[in-house]
């Protein structure tokens, strides 16, 4: 991996309550994300994960601490509008509600919105739009009206609109939480494809475990602090920590945990059904010789 693309240094954020009290949301978070990484930030609602997204997106300014993106301090007061524009080209966001991100009444016009803002000539925009729609598998819908599409399809159009700007990093802010299972699966596949095939850095902020399982690295946030930082296998092998952080424990991990408590020495990754089945089978053949 190359040098750090996003550096978060001791980041804190607190908002003002009515009586002038400060309510802390983030308490000194430090996190480095390298180029090309696929990171899931896991946490329940109110854990501070969406505040982190808003800080990364320059919607909020931190109470203390810094965020450095590609060598530029985005939390600096002296950040010029042009510098901000440059940053927005590099780090883009996909939001929760697909409806509220689409601007135009025709799919391809919407995908073109970003490149149009960046001032590319129209042949270049055409190329980018076609390419982006192909990447998300929505080429045949180029001339459709967004409001007639399903949630998952709309979200993929929103993603196409963003990759048409050829960003270096995409932050998904709970982008699958309003989708049905098939829509979620399509969006997750797209995320993986963008990271693995296009080399785009992907940060996904979520509370869904299967979304985290697919990432290379999982960061668990609770109470505005980083609780855990590791591979999915490492994270899922600690059901207690997940439970305390208000998160779901995948059923397979829960079964293995219970069996361990009963004295069955199961050791190994078990965050997917396949791994778990294998683990149990191996145990049965090796230890008990069944």
């Amino acid at each position: 991996m190359e040098k750090n693309f996003i550096e978060i240094e001791n980041l804190s954020y607190a908002y003002d309550e009515d009586e002038g009290d400060k309510v802390p949301v983030l308490n000194g978070i430090s996190l480095n994300i390298s180029k090309g990484e696929y990171v899931a930030v896991l946490g329940h609602n109110g854990s501070g994960k969406s505040t982190l997204a808003k800080l990364l997106n320059m919607i909020l300014t931190p109470t203390s601490g810094k965020i450095i993106v590609d060598g530029v301090d985005i939390t600096s007061d002296e950040l010029t509008e042009d510098a901000m524009f440059e940053l927005r080209k590099k780090v883009v966001m996909v939001f929760q509600n697909p409806d509220n991100q689409l601007v135009a009444t025709i799919v391809e016009e919407d995908v073109a919105f970003g490149p149009e803002n960046l001032g590319y000539p129209s042949e270049e925009i055409r190329k980018r739009v076609d390419e982006a729609l192909r990447t998300v598998g929505m080429s045949e819908y180029a001339h459709h009206e967004p409001h007639r599409l399903s949630g998952g399809q709309k979200q993929r159009i929103a993603i196409a609109g963003i990759i048409a700007m050829s960003p270096e990093c995409i932050i998904f802010d709970e982008s699958t939480s309003m989708l049905d299972p098939s829509g979620r699966k399509d969006v997750l596949n797209t995320m993986e494809k963008l990271n693995k095939e296009k080399g785009i850095t992907v940060v996904t902020i979520t509370h869904y475990m299967n979304e985290a399982a697919q990432a290379d690295r999982v960061v668990v946030i609770d109470d505005g602090r980083i609780l855990m930082d590791g591979t999915p296998a490492e994270i899922f092998s600690k059901p207690d920590v997940l439970r305390n952080a208000g998160l779901d424990v995948p059923q397979c991990s829960a079964i293995v945990e219970e069996l361990k408590k009963l004295g069955v020495p199961l050791d190994g990754d078990c965050y997917s059904t396949e791994l778990c089945a294998e683990l149990i089978c191996n145990y049965l053949t090796n230890v008990q010789g069944l």
């Binding site: 524009f85 966001m93 970003g114 609109g161």
Partner: peptide, 19 residues
């Protein structure tokens, strides 16, 4: 929508091109 548009580098008509 305003936030999403800003994220997509919208800053008014100036410098904008067309598909």
């Amino acid at each position: 929508l305003a936030i999403a548009m800003e994220c997509r580098c919208y800053r008014g008509g100036e410098g904008r091109t067309k598909l």
